[in-house]
Design a protein around this nucleic acid. Structure first.
Length: 681
DNA sequence: TTAAATTTTAT
DNA sequence: TAAAATTTA
C-alpha cells in the first residue's frame, strides 16, 4: 500500500497491545505505523538509569514481537528530538494521522504539546488518549471545581465518581501495516558491555513485556492479593504485587488492574471475607497513590524538584557528600537502613516499607536534600518513576499538606524490629552482621563487647558506628526548623516591602532547561553479599551524576568504594563523626537569594555551590574519608534544586495557599494549553 | 460498660 | 510521633 494514508501510533510508556487506546484508534483508522522514539537527552536530568534501560530494552523487544505477530512491527528511532523524528516518519510513510497516549510528567507535557502543534501544522491529524489513569487529572475536582490537595479526599472522590473508569479494550486481532519500506529503524542501544554484566542477574527475577505483566497481574490477583493487608509489612515478604515496573512502562493498564481487583472485591464482599476486603482496599489505595502522583505532577509540574509546601524551601538542608555517600553505600551504622541500601544497589528493588525507612532516614536523620535521594532512587530503581518518586519523597520529607510531620524522626532500630523482627533481612544483606544475635541485630552499637567479638564484628572497622545519633539528629532538626521559620518570615517581610516584587515572573527563558548532566559515576566494586547464593559484582552501579567540570574526580572517589568484606574497606567507614558537632549546612538559602537576584543564573550557581561545599568540608569532621582517598577533587552531584523552580521563587505555588500554580502564571501557558490539548482524545 | 492500656499505621 | 483503632481489666 505504497504511501497510502496511514496513521502513526507513537508508543511511549504504554508498551502494550491490550487496552491501548492509541493503538486501537490507529487500527480502526486503517494502516498503522508503530513508532518508538528513544530520546533520553530530552529527559534532561532524569534520563533512565541502568536497570530502567534494561527493562525498556526487553519490553520493546517484547512489544515488537507482539506487533509482528499481529501484522506489523515496531519502528525505532534514536533521536535528540522526538518531534522531528515523528516528522521524519510522517514524511517517509505518508502518514496522515498521529495517535498517542497521555503522559503527565512535566517534560512530556511540554513535549507532547509541541508534537501536537508541529504535526498539526504539517497537516497531520493528531489525537491523544488516556491510557495511564482511571480518570484524567482534570476530571477529578472538589465541589468548587478545584483540584484536591490531599490524597484521602482525592481518592475518595475517585472511588465515587459518577461514572466508572473506562472498561479495558481488547488487543487488536490484526494490524494492517503501513508502508515502512522507506522508514528505517535505528538500532537502539540501552546498555554497554559493562552494564550487560550487571544486568545479567535481573532476568532471573523479572520478565519485562506486556504479556508477562499480564501474567504477573493474574498471579497476584489469584494469590497474594488475599493476604496483601497481612503481609505487606515485612521487609522481605514476596507478597507485594511486583507490578510497579510493568505499570511504569505501561505494560499493563491500571484500568485492567482496577477492573480485575474490583471483581475480587465484589466476590469477597459477598462471601463476607473481611481480610480479603481489607486487602483489596489497601491494594487499590496503592493504585490510587499512583494516580495521585500523576495528578500532582499535572497540577504542580514542579513537584519533582520543589516542595509543595512553600516554607520548606527555606529549610537549611545539610549538604554533605560524606553522608550522602555513606547512605548510598549502606554504611550508616543503622542495619535496617544499610541492608535496604545494599539491596537497592544489588537488585534495583526495594520493598515499599524499606523505601520509607531509608528515605526517611535520609531526610530526617541525615537532613540531606530530598532531591538528592530522589535522584539516586531514580538512577537505581527498576521501577523508577518520576511522579511516584516525587510523591514519595515529598511525603517523607513533610513537604506535602498531608505528608508526615516534618519534625518526626523515625528510629531505624525500632523500625528494624517492626519490619524485620528476626533480623533475617539484615543478615541477608549485611553479611558482616550475619552472626549477631537477633537481640542486637538492629542496634549493634549497644551490644556487649563479648557479643560483638563472638560475632566477629569490630564497630568502626568492619561495620560502622552510627553516622549520626538519633538524639543529635532531633536537636539538629529543631535548630534547622527554627532557622527555616526565620528565613521564611524574613522573606515574607521582604516581599511585603516590595523588595523582591515580580522577580518570580521575570524568567521566561528556558522554562524546562535543567542543568547539564554528565554520565553517571561508576563504582567498580567487587563486593560480596551472600544474597541468593551468588557472588555479585557491583560494577557500574549508578549514582547521581555530577557537574561536568568535576568529572575528573569520579574515579578517584569510586574506585575505593564499598569493599564490604575486604580489609581494605575499613578506611571507607565514615568515622570520626562527632555526633555533637553539627555538620555544615548548605548555603542553599544564599544560593536561592542569588538566583533570584540574578535570575537565570542557575547553571553558574550550581557549580560554585558544589565546589564550595567540597572545599568547606575538607576540614569538617564528617569528611575525613574524602580527604584521605579522593585526592582533593570531590565529585559533586548537582542538586536539581537550582535548575528551574528557584527561578520562580517569588511565586506562590504553595499547595497550601493556592491549589494550582497554573491559572495565575501566564508564563506557563504551555501547560494551560495542554489542559485543552488533553481533552481532545 | 467504661476507661485505660496497647497496638497499629500513617501518602 | 501522635491519632486512631483495638484489646484488656
Amino acid at each position: 500500500m505504497a504511501g497510502g494514508a496511514c496513521s502513526i501510533v507513537w508508543f511511549r510508556r504504554d508498551l502494550r497491545v491490550e487496552d491501548n487506546p492509541a493503538l486501537t484508534a490507529g487500527v480502526r483508522a486503517g494502516a498503522v505505523v508503530a513508532v518508538f522514539v528513544w530520546a533520553p537527552e530530552e529527559e534532561g536530568h532524569y534520563q533512565p538509569g541502568r536497570v530502567s534501560r534494561w527493562w525498556l530494552k526487553h519490553s520493546l523487544a517484547h512489544l515488537d514481537s507482539s506487533l509482528r505477530s499481529l501484522g506489523t512491527c515496531l519502528v525505532t528511532k534514536r533521536s535528540s528530538d522526538s518531534v522531528s523524528s515523528l516528522l521524519e516518519v510522517v514524511k517517509s510513510t505518508g502518514a496522515t494521522q498521529l495517535f498517542f497516549n497521555h503522559l503527565y510528567d512535566p517534560i512530556s507535557l511540554v513535549r507532547d504539546h509541541r508534537a501536537k502543534e508541529v504535526l498539526t501544522a504539517h497537516g497531520v491529524a493528531v489525537r491523544s488518549f488516556n491510557a495511564d489513569l482511571l480518570y484524567e487529572p482534570w476530571d477529578v475536582n472538589d465541589a468548587q471545581g478545584r483540584p484536591f490537595t490531599t490524597f484521602a479526599a482525592f481518592w475518595e472522590r475517585c472511588l465515587s465518581m459518577p461514572y466508572d473508569p473506562e472498561a479495558p479494550l481488547l488487543p487488536p486481532k490484526r494490524i494492517i501495516s503501513g508502508d515502512v519500506t522507506s522508514c528505517h529503524s535505528d538500532q537502539l542501544v540501552f546498555e554497554d558491555d559493562l552494564e550487560k554484566g550487571s544486568n545479567a542477574l535481573l532476568a532471573r527475577a523479572w520478565s519485562p513485556g506486556w504479556s508477562n505483566a499480564d501474567k504477573a497481574l493474574t498471579t497476584f490477583i489469584n494469590g497474594p492479593l488475599l493476604e496483601y493487608s497481612k503481609n505487606r509489612r515485612k521487609a522481605d515478604s514476596a507478597t507485594t504485587s511486583f507490578l510497579s515496573p510493568h505499570l511504569h512502562f505501561g505494560e499493563v493498564s491500571v484500568r485492567k488492574v482496577f477492573n480485575l481487583v474490583r471483581i475480587k472485591q465484589v466476590l469477597w464482599a459477598n462471601e463476607g471475607n473481611k481480610a480479603g476486603q481489607e486487602s483489596v482496599n489497601l491494594f487499590l489505595e496503592s493504585i490510587g497513590l499512583r494516580e495521585y502522583s500523576r495528578y500532582l505532577s499535572f497540577n504542580h509540574p514542579y513537584s519533582h524538584e520543589r516542595p509543595l509546601l512553600g516554607h520548606l524551601k527555606f529549610f537549611p538542608w545539610v549538604v554533605d557528600e560524606g553522608y550522602f555517600k555513606a547512605w548510598r553505600q549502606g554504611r550508616t551504622g543503622y542495619p535496617l537502613v544499610d541492608a535496604g541500601m545494599r539491596e537497592l544497589w544489588a537488585t534495583g528493588w526495594l520493598h515499599d516499607r524499606i523505601r520509607v525507612v531509608v528515605s526517611s532516614f535520609f531526610v530526617k536523620v541525615l537532613q540531606l536534600p530530598w532531591r538528592w535521594g530522589m535522584k539516586y532512587f531514580w538512577d537505581t530503581l527498576l521501577d523508577a518513576d518520576l511522579e511516584s518518586d516525587a510523591l514519595g519523597w515529598q511525603y517523607i520529607s513533610g513537604t506535602l499538606p498531608d505528608g508526615r510531620e516534618f519534625d518526626r524522626i523515625d528510629n531505624p532500630q525500632f523500625e528494624g524490629y517492626k519490619f524485620d523482627p528476626h533480623g533475617e533481612y539484615v543478615r541477608r544483606w549485611l553479611p558482616e552482621l550475619a552472626r549477631l544475635p537477633t537481640d542486637w541485630i538492629h542496634h549493634p552499637w549497644n551490644a556487649p563487647e563479648s557479643v560483638l567479638q563472638a560475632a566477629g564484628i569490630e564497630l568502626g572497622s568492619n561495620y560502622p558506628l552510627p553516622i549520626v545519633g538519633i538524639d543529635a539528629a532531633k536537636d539538629r532538626l529543631q535548630e534547622a526548623l527554627s532557622e527555616m521559620w526565620q528565613l521564611e518570615a524574613a522573606s515574607r517581610a521582604a516581599i511585603e516591602n516590595g523588595t523582591e516584587e515580580g522577580l518570580g515572573d521575570s524568567t521566561e527563558a528556558t522554562p524546562f532547561a535543567f542543568p547539564q548532566d554528565t554520565p553517571m559515576e561508576e563504582n567498580v566494586e567487587p563486593a560480596r553479599i551472600n544474597a541468593p547464593a551468588t557472588t555479585r559484582r557491583y560494577e557500574d552501579q549508578m549514582v547521581p551524576s555530577m557537574t561536568s567540570s568535576l568529572v575528573r574526580g569520579v574515579h578517584d572517589e569510586t574506585s575505593s568504594d564499598l569493599r564490604t568484606s575486604e580489609e581494605g574497606s575499613r578506611a571507607e567507614v565514615p568515622r570520626n563523626v562527632n555526633v555533637h558537632q553539627a555538620p555544615q549546612r548548605g548555603t542553599l538559602n544564599q544560593g536561592i537569594q542569588q538566583t533570584v537576584r540574578n535570575n537565570n543564573s542557575f547553571l553558574q550557581f550550581n557549580l560554585p555551590m558544589g565546589v564550595r561545599n567540597a572545599e568547606d568540608s575538607t576540614d569538617s569532621s564528617t569528611s575525613s574519608s574524602r580527604r584521605e582517598r579522593d585526592g582533593g577533587v570531590v565529585p559533586v552531584w548537582s542538586p536539581p534544586a537550582s535548575s528551574y523552580s528557584e527561578q520562580f521563587i517569588g511565586d506562590e505555588n504553595d499547595i497550601g495557599t493556592s491549589s494550582s500554580y497554573l491559572p495565575r502564571h501566564p508564563q506557563s501557558h504551555q501547560i494551560l494549553n495542554w489542559r485543552r490539548l488533553s481533552q481532545t482524545g
